[in-house]
Design a protein around this nucleic acid. Structure first.
Length: 496
RNA sequence: GCCGCGUUCGUCUAGGGGUUCAGGACGCCGCCCUUUCACGGCGGUAACACGGGUUCAAAUCCCGUACGCGGUACCA
């Protein structure tokens, strides 16, 4: 068992309540980079203590998302490890034991209040100046708990099997300070925090208890998580103190904001066209390298002007010194730019399987060799692999001709020039890019017109539109028969 | 409301008291390349929230205000 305090041990601890959020992947990535940078250990712990929100498929989605991004973990429910099990639902006894210790030592107490009674407490104290009354040292004596009830009453209730929770007994006047790796010194006063529920009435622990118990048991040295956890850190500090344990070093990452400001919620993200779950990025055909690179640069900068990083390079360069503290707006354009970059860096054969999936979705047939040619033709013109299907002319004869392009490019002599060119290339001994161009320029000379006078109508004839890859490369990929056929068809359809 | 955390171009950021009338990237605009559209190259646009201090000197340090964000659950 690793007991060397110098050995970095961090954990990514998602809750299986749905598809892994892009912000969750960022947290996982940061943990990964920090662990690998220090030659440490990354643990995946599934925090499934919320039965109401539990989703069966979520764990598989988390695993799939991490592996898609190239994030490997060392200890997990699947890989096992020295601190098994790695699912909190399987560690219930240790939380129950821990809670008993706290009650025993007076750091926690039992509370029998129903949801209704708590709601009444809130209503009782709610006012303009106190919109969210707490269950805390001010109010706990008004409630039914082992602090307000007699010992007899408590044991009667317990024997009767009354539902109850365990609450943290927060003592007044304590300073709860810690040094955050990203924010520096942070201090809270115990008077401002409530008697947090540690064990729910279903017997399962809340995040706060489970998290502290497990981080200690698993010898976690650094807790790296989102800033939304910053306000609950003092509660955790209180728990570490109550147990007599040393708290891990904390690092609270700035939150990812939606472009309109505010948390990147499902709604705000969708409005901005931003995928929220990693599954959507996978489905939308993002390059994982692009997402990783982009995510790493959210709130962190390498201190140089380098912007493209492989995972290995990120591991090498990562440091908390260069993590910012302010929330970061999600910039979809920048992500797209990264995606284009990584797309261009991939070979056609690498991209073929993914392209094929997209083609199949819309029922396009195409053999591999041809598909590779198409990818080479289009790679610099698309942002995502799936955009290949937006150019159907690459796979089939155009069914119509863009009206604006026709009026701009199809002149009175186009029909003749295009068919003449079709005749010329039909005769070509070698259907090469060079020969194709030579033939066209020769034809232009013969007719005393500029090459563009033929090039544009030909493009329109074979593709139905007026923009796209270099014409001769396009013709070459399309093949002789197809080109000739398309040109004659266009001449017939568009006429004079 | 209370508690906490923030605040440099539209966005991500560099910058840690003088060498910065603030550098890079995305976006946007223009030019070049060019048969189109892209790619690429070049150039341009645009920021230290505000007010007080401290100091010879502040984007940089301190305080306050404003604004933003997070938390304020038997959710994580």
């Amino acid at each position: 068992m690793p007991t060397n305090p110098e050995h970095v041990r961090v954990r990514f601890a998602p809750s299986p309540t749905g598809l892994l959020h892009i912000g969750g992947l960022r947290t996982a990535l940061t943990n990964y980079l920090f662990a690998r940078h220090h030659g440490g250990t990354l643990i995946l712990r599934i925090e499934d203590t919320d039965r109401a929100r539990f989703i069966e498929e979520a764990e598989a989605d988390i695993l799939h998302s991490l592996s898609w991004a190239g994030i490997t973990v060392d200890e997990s429910p699947q890989r096992g490890g020295p601190f098994e099990p790695y699912r909190q639902s399987e560690r219930s006894e240790s939380y129950a034991r821990a809670a008993a210790v706290l009650v025993e030592s007076g750091h926690a107490y039992l509370a029998f209040d129903s949801a209704d009674e708590i709601e009444q407490l809130r209503q009782r104290h709610r006012s303009e100046s106190n919109p969210n009354p707490r269950y805390d040292l001010e109010t706990r004596l008004e409630m039914k708990n082992s602090l307000s009830l007699s010992a007899e009453e408590v044991s009667v209730r317990l024997e009767r099997g009354d539902a109850h929770v365990v609450r943290l007994k927060v003592e007044p006047g304590q300073s709860l300070a810690f040094t955050d790796l990203i924010r520096g010194d942070v201090e809270f006063q115990s008077d401002t925090i409530d008697d947090q529920v540690l064990v729910k009435s279903d017997g399962l622990p809340t995040y706060h208890l489970a998290n502290v118990v497990d981080d200690h048991a698993m010898q976690i040295t650094h807790v790296i998580r989102g800033e939304e956890w910053l306000p609950s850190t003092p509660k955790h500090i209180l728990l570490y103190r109550a147990f007599g344990w040393t708290a891990p070093v904390m690092a609270h990452l700035p939150l990812i904001l939606s472009p309109s400001g505010g948390k990147l919620s499902k709604r705000s993200a969708e409005r901005a066209g931003i995928p929220v779950s990693v599954a959507e990025y996978i489905k939308s055909d993002y390059e994982p390298e692009a997402v990783v690179n982009f995510l790493a640069l959210l709130g962190w900068n390498p201190g140089s002007e380098k912007e493209f990083f492989t995972l290995e390079e990120l591991v090498e360069a990562f440091s908390f010194d260069r993590v910012g503290q302010a929330g970061i707006q999600f910039d979809l354009d920048k992500l797209k730019w990264f995606n284009e970059h990584y797309l261009r860096g991939k070979t056609a054969s690498e991209l073929v399987p993914r392209a094929r999936i997209e083609l199949e979705k819309v029922g396009i047939q195409c053999d591999n060799a041809r598909l590779e040619d198409v990818i080479d033709l289009m790679r610099e013109r698309i942002s995502f692999v799936k955009e290949l299907v937006n150019s159907p002319y690459l796979f089939a004869d155009p069914t119509d001709y863009d009206a604006r392009s026709v009026s701009k490019r199809w002149k009175e002599d186009s029909s003749k020039l295009v068919t003449d060119y079709a005749d010329a290339i039909a005769e070509l001994p070698e259907f090469t890019v060079e020969a194709l161009e030579e033939a066209l320029r020769a034809l232009a000379d013969e007719n005393g017109v500029g090459a563009g006078r033929i090039i544009h109508p030909v493009r329109l004839a074979v593709s139905g539109i007026s923009h796209g890859p270099g014409l001769f490369e396009l013709l070459h990929v399309l093949g002789k028969e197809s080109c000739v056929r398309r040109m004659f068809t266009a001449a017939e359809v568009l006429g004079e």
